[in-house]
């Protein structure tokens, strides 16, 4: 019985090892390039120094400034930007809402209707739908003020990893107190994903935030989706 040896061409044999080596090197280079393009460390085009989330936005139901129930998920298909505040707030909240107004103006007109800005009071004890209706649309008639019971408000704040604290009554007047609160703005994509939060200090970058919003509207998904389609 004769064993037939497989015939290997000398050229193939010569090239086999270098070819494998080349593949390994190429793979390594490609892998490291992909790693540096990870959105957590390197985001192309999106406003830097963001608090990345990209998780399903916790849903909530509150009451809007017209007294109607509002559910976050009813804005699916739109970009939602919201922040927490209170109407006795003389400084931070007017600044936030002014920035929101400038951001909305900076969003290209054809897609402006696809963004909804919300302002959620963390002072339902003193605020009311009527008071919110005086306050919020003053900065932009398209904005919506939201309120709930103290429990409902606390729940929303908690689920967005935010916080607030009512200060001690000042000068003995129980209706006169400050409210410390998270002043970040939260960005929810049209697919209902909580994309990220903008720290308060970033809000003056209205053009950049408007660009982020426009990108979300146009792409439909978040930064990761946008990156894949680049």
């Amino acid at each position: 019985m004769t064993v037939s040896e497989p015939k290997v061409s000398p050229l193939w044999k010569k090239l086999l090892f270098p070819a494998i080596l080349l593949l390994l090197i190429a793979g390594g280079v490609a892998g490291s390039m992909l790693a540096t393009r990870d959105p957590q460390t390197h985001v192309h085009g999106w406003l830097d120094r963001l608090l990345w989330q990209r998780i399903p936005a916790p849903d909530f139901t509150l009451t809007d400034h017209n007294g109607e129930p509002v559910r976050l998920s009813q804005f699916r298909g739109k970009v939602v930007v919201f922040s927490f505040g209170f109407t006795h707030c003389p400084n931070i909240c007017p600044a936030t809402l002014s920035h929101f107004s400038a951001i909305r103006e900076a969003v290209p007109e054809p897609i402006r209707h696809q963004v909804q800005f919300l302002f959620i009071t963390v002072d339902p004890e003193r605020d009311s739908p009527e008071r919110l209706k005086e306050y919020v649309p003053f900065f932009d008639p398209h904005f919506l003020g939201l309120i709930g019971t103290p429990e409902e408000v606390r729940d929303v704040v908690y689920r967005y990893k935010a916080s607030f604290r009512h200060g001690k009554p000042r000068a003995g007047d129980p209706k006169d107190y400050f409210v410390d609160h998270t002043a970040d703005a939260f960005l929810i994509g049209p697919d209902g994903q909580w994309e990220l939060s903008y720290p308060f200090e970033e809000l003056p970058k209205t053009e950049r935030i408007a660009a982020d919003i426009a990108r979300l509207v146009n792409v439909g998904g978040g930064p990761r989706e946008a990156r894949r389609r680049d």
Partner: peptide, 15 residues
Amino acid sequence: PMLTTKEDGRMGMKD
């Protein structure tokens, strides 16, 4: 006069 404070991620005010 009023200071703006930031503590534990919360913005607030201080006389």
